[in-house]
Design a protein around this nucleic acid. Sequence first.
DNA 1: GTCTTGCCGTACGTAGGCGTATGGGGTACA
DNA 2: TGTACCCCATACGCCTACGTACGGCAAGAC
Lengths: 214, 214
Amino acid sequence: MGYNGTMNVESGRRTLTADHWADAALDAIAEGGVEALAVERLARGLGVTKGSFYWHFDNRNALLEAALRRWERQQTEEVIARAELERDAHARIDRLFRSADGSKRAGQLYLAFAVAANDPLVGSVVRRVNQRRIGFMVSSYVAMGLGAEEARQRAVLAYSVYLGTLQLRRDAPELIPTGPEFNDYMNYISEVLIPGFDADHRPASPPPSGRLDP
Amino acid sequence: MGYNGTMNVESGRRTLTADHWADAALDAIAEGGVEALAVERLARGLGVTKGSFYWHFDNRNALLEAALRRWERQQTEEVIARAELERDAHARIDRLFRSADGSKRAGQLYLAFAVAANDPLVGSVVRRVNQRRIGFMVSSYVAMGLGAEEARQRAVLAYSVYLGTLQLRRDAPELIPTGPEFNDYMNYISEVLIPGFDADHRPASPPPSGRLDP
DNA sequence: GTCTTGCCGTACGTAGGCGTATGGGGTACA
DNA sequence: TGTACCCCATACGCCTACGTACGGCAAGAC
């Protein structure tokens, strides 16, 4: 069960760390929402009991905070990585949306946290993440030469499309094209969202492994 | 408390009905998610006790089913009403998005049900609702003269924008323009999503009370 | 006036989840 | 070898929520 009494198999460590718990918490949240963050349930999944948890954390809320910090940090790192990877603003936005096809867990995590934003802790983190993402998109549009207001309009629309696509991938995945039709759909989205985009001047097949989905 | 022992005030009925419970369940779900559908909690809100509930329903799941049926029926009725109200396909889509500004509860309900789609009962209803909505949008685009495939592409994008706007209105409402800027933003969305749309030929202020948000 | 029926209150059993108290085993280090 | 410390197991109390059993009351039927 990942812990046999003397040795933790996957990490070589003999005992668990707080990060192990935080990762398990994020997995549970991505799968079943914030309510699925249950201490004894996670303990069973890690092959230990509550005794371990309450040694590493004060209470359930502390674990939720740790998971939120971890999630926000990953978001921030990936935003920076994205900004450094693509210097062309067109390529940034195009790549952002193509990457939404890849990381399923990231989308589930956002949706799970967003629906639990009643909790002030969760809500504040969700707000910061959204502001950072929107800020990134606004700056990308500004880098294209758009004015401040038009850049904001386009960024809000583009982010809406991103969130909506996240929802559709979860609620009605049969509607999202796959295979070669996905490229056609992406070109259509790019033409709509990126001013001056011309699908005919793009390579037929972009780099398939875009691991920078927020 | 809505029930004083001999007389139900708001409806004139002396006792509650199953529909009263279903409505209260939908209110609770819109406010706090499917997990907020708690029997004793709803009973307190209605001014009665569990004894009433378990006379009208077999168990909590039966109430969830009733609420889902009620929600799906409203969705269907509103889709029909929307189709009958606007015969111009342009006006249909434009009105759909403008109405998203109005009914807050409807959006919260969709998001609450969608995030609980792990439950097979909830999931099947959410899928049907999505298929009906997308079908409506596809037919609207086809009515504009678009081909089947292009209509599908545009409908998926338009519905993504709709869902994403729902999310943003809940998670980052400060990003959605209000007042006169909302019209500018809507015109921009319409230009992007509706082929042949020309904001200059529209009246300055559309009918403000569009009560047909799904 | 009694009897039935619809609707609800009350009390109880059960399960799960949080948090606490306390003990114990293993490891490092002396 | 012994000891201190890290990490975890166990047992318990508490609360909440579901579901059940049963009793009660008001109104119409007869």
